[in-house]
Structures are given as structure tokens and as C-alpha cells.
């Protein structure tokens, strides 16, 4: 089989969105400064932290949609003193209002959207937490401005525990392979599902599929150099195979047909099912796409020409995957 590690490494460099992205970092820092300077005197004191894929080291530039950075704001309040979780959300919303054309309260965060050429280019999501509670747990403020009481609530949440879990799963170069393979899956999703929301598995669902037994390190010790040689392609094949195996096939009364489905819990509080928003039909579609991916990856295994292997991988991942070729043999040529 071909050694495609250089191609995968280059692919990852092309898609990764991380702390090196100065633009996002700058926007975040400007917003945090503005928040500090303009937040109402009525607001409680707070501290901030990075959360989401950016903080876990698994961020990518998505296709056909704007990209984001997630920031957590921990107010030193007891949720029991704020029966309306909208109140601390509005502290943040009011402080940042007018900074860009679009600052809005969404169900799980306050979002500041930046536009470029009239289109959404990227946004910063602020998740608002109550951090000083009697049970020593953290709670996230849920609800929009016009939500009824039922849709305004505090939900137990452990975003920092999640980041820690992902970050501490592996160390050193192993952790880098773990994160690379998660990025490949996220890019595959971005390339193979339409960008409108719920029909695709979320980035965190794909991350936890890898975290929760789907992924294992694939490396070989090289006696010549005394170093480990990583094989991302094999690690990816193994992960996709394990994801496929995780589905169960049963009758879905909701879809009126047999469907492949699964449930998957977040490994930290609130231990919610990460596929809860997908219908059984959408899960079946996810399964079919995973199956197709596995077939394509197996096809790659059979290729002896680098250009042909890369062409299949471009089909799976899009043009960020480099098309390399073997050395050309030009021979001779006679023309008249």
C-alpha cells in the first residue's frame, strides 16, 4: 500500500483552524475588551475561557459556511439567584450591541457575527455560565429573548471538563494524530453533507465518536531513525470502520422503515445524547455516507498509483486534499 502520510499532513495544514488564526484571536480579544469596558455596573464579576473545537484543537475551516470561535463567560453568580437565565445573557448582549451589524441572543449563546462583502464570514459565540452554585457545578444559560419560561432554563454543563477530557486522552505526538484524524472526519462531513444544520452529525458528535473507543493510535517504530512513524490513513480507516460497527439496525416507527441508528453520550455533564437532534432517516443517511466512505477508503488501499489514490481522497474530502503524483518517466518521443 502507498504511504500517504505526507499528503494527509499537508491536507491537515490546509484545513485546520487553530490558535494561529490571528484574525479570530484579534476579534475575540477586541470583543472581550469591549465587554470589560462597557458591561453594566449591575452585572456580576466574571472570568472567560476558550471553548469549543478551537480550544480542543480540532477546528477546521468549514465549506460554504462561516466559521466561529467559542468563548465561555463564567459569571460568579448562583443560578438560584437568577430565575431568568436571560438576565446575565443580556448583560453580555447589551455590552456588545452595535459592535457589528448582528449581535443576537441565541438559544445557547450570544453571537457576534462579522461580515465580509455583505456575507457572514465568521462569528464569535459567547456561552454564558453561572459558576458559583451550591452544588459546585456549572450551569449554562439557555433561552432566547422571546422564549417562554419553558425554554428559558439553566442546564448543568461542564465545558472545561470536556476540553480536558479531549486534551488529556492522549499526549505528545499521539494527541496530534488524534486531533488530525478528528479534523479529517469533520472535513469529510463538511464536504459530504449540505451545510444546513441538522441533517449532519455535529462536530462534537464526530469528536466523541473518536474519543469514545472509535479511534486508536496507529504508529510504527522505525529502528533506522529511532522514531515513531504515524499512519493517519490507517487510523482513519479504523475509525470509520468502528463508527460503522457502532450503528444498530432496527425498525423505526418514526421513519416507517428499517434504519441504522445509534446514540452517543457526551462524556461529561449533562451526558446528553449527541444525536438527539437527528431523525432516524437522517441517521440512516449518515450510516450510508459512512459506508460509502469506508468503500472509498478500501478502494484507496488497492491503488498503486499515487495520483489515483489522491483522486479518490479528493472525492471524499474536497480540493484541500493534495493531488500528488509518482515520479514521471518521460521516455523518448519521435515526431515528424
Amino acid at each position: 500500500m502507498l504511504d500517504l502520510q505526507k499528503e494527509f499532513i499537508k491536507f491537515q495544514e490546509n484545513i485546520k483552524l487553530d490558535d494561529e488564526n490571528q484574525k479570530l484571536r484579534d476579534k475575540r480579544d477586541i470583543l472581550l475588551k469591549k465587554l470589560k469596558n462597557t458591561i453594566s455596573d449591575d452585572a456580576a464579576s466574571y472570568s472567560t475561557f476558550n471553548q469549543g473545537s478551537y480550544a480542543m484543537g480540532t477546528g477546521i475551516y468549514p465549506e460554504d459556511e462561516d466559521y466561529d470561535i467559542d468563548v465561555g463567560i463564567k459569571f460568579n453568580i448562583d443560578k438560584d439567584d437568577y430565575s431568568d437565565p436571560l438576565e446575565p445573557k443580556m448583560w453580555v448582549k447589551d455590552a456588545l450591541d452595535g459592535h457589528t451589524k448582528k449581535v443576537e441572543v441565541r438559544r445557547s449563546c450570544v453571537t457576534v457575527t462579522y461580515q465580509e462583502n455583505g456575507e457572514s464570514a465568521y462569528h464569535v459565540d459567547f456561552a454564558i455560565y453561572a459558576a458559583d452554585n451550591a452544588d459546585e457545578k456549572m450551569y449554562i444559560a439557555k433561552g432566547k429573548t422571546y422564549s417562554d419560561d419553558e425554554h428559558r432554563y439553566w442546564e448543568v454543563s461542564d465545558p472545561q471538563g470536556l476540553i480536558k477530557a479531549i486534551k488529556n486522552k492522549y499526549s505528545g505526538d499521539d494527541a496530534l494524530q488524534f486531533r488530525r484524524v478528528i479534523r479529517y472526519m469533520k472535513k469529510w462531513k463538511s464536504h459530504n453533507f449540505s451545510s444546513n444544520g441538522d441533517s449532519a452529525p455535529t462536530g462534537i458528535a464526530l469528536t466523541i465518536l473518536a474519543y469514545d473507543g472509535g479511534f486508536s493510535i496507529n504508529k510504527k517504530y522505525d529502528w533506522a531513525t529511532g522514531k515513531y512513524i504515524y499512519d493517519d490513513f490507517s487510523a482513519l480507516c479504523n475509525l470509520v470502520y468502528n463508527i460503522k460497527k457502532r450503528f444498530s439496525y432496527s425498525w423505526s416507527s418514526e421513519a416507517g422503515q428499517m434504519c441504522h441508528t445509534m446514540s452517543l453520550s457526551l462524556p461529561v455533564e449533562p451526558y446528553n445524547d449527541l444525536f438527539v437532534k437527528m431523525t432516524d432517516k437522517q441517521m440512516e443517511n449518515f450510516y450510508q455516507k459512512i459506508n460509502k466512505m469506508l468503500e472509498k477508503l478500501n478502494e484507496v488501499k488497492g491503488k498503486t498509483k499515487r495520483s489515483e489514490a489522491c483522486t479518490i481522497l479528493v472525492e471524499l474530502f474536497g480540493e484541500d486534499f493534495p493531488v500528488t503524483v509518482d515520479k514521471s518517466m518521460v521516455g523518448t518521443s519521435e515526431s515528424a
Binding site: 503524483v325 515520479k327 514521471s328 518521460v330 523518448t332 518521443s333 519521435e334 515526431s335 515528424a336
Partner: peptide, 17 residues
Amino acid sequence: GFHRMEKGHQEKMDQLW
């Protein structure tokens, strides 16, 4: 006629590669 040899072209190809 033009009869192209391997030498020269192969090296240039390798370099571009």
C-alpha cells in the same frame, strides 16, 4: 522531424516534480 531524447527532459521533469 523532431526526435526527443530522455536526457535533459527527465531531469527537468524531476526538478519540476
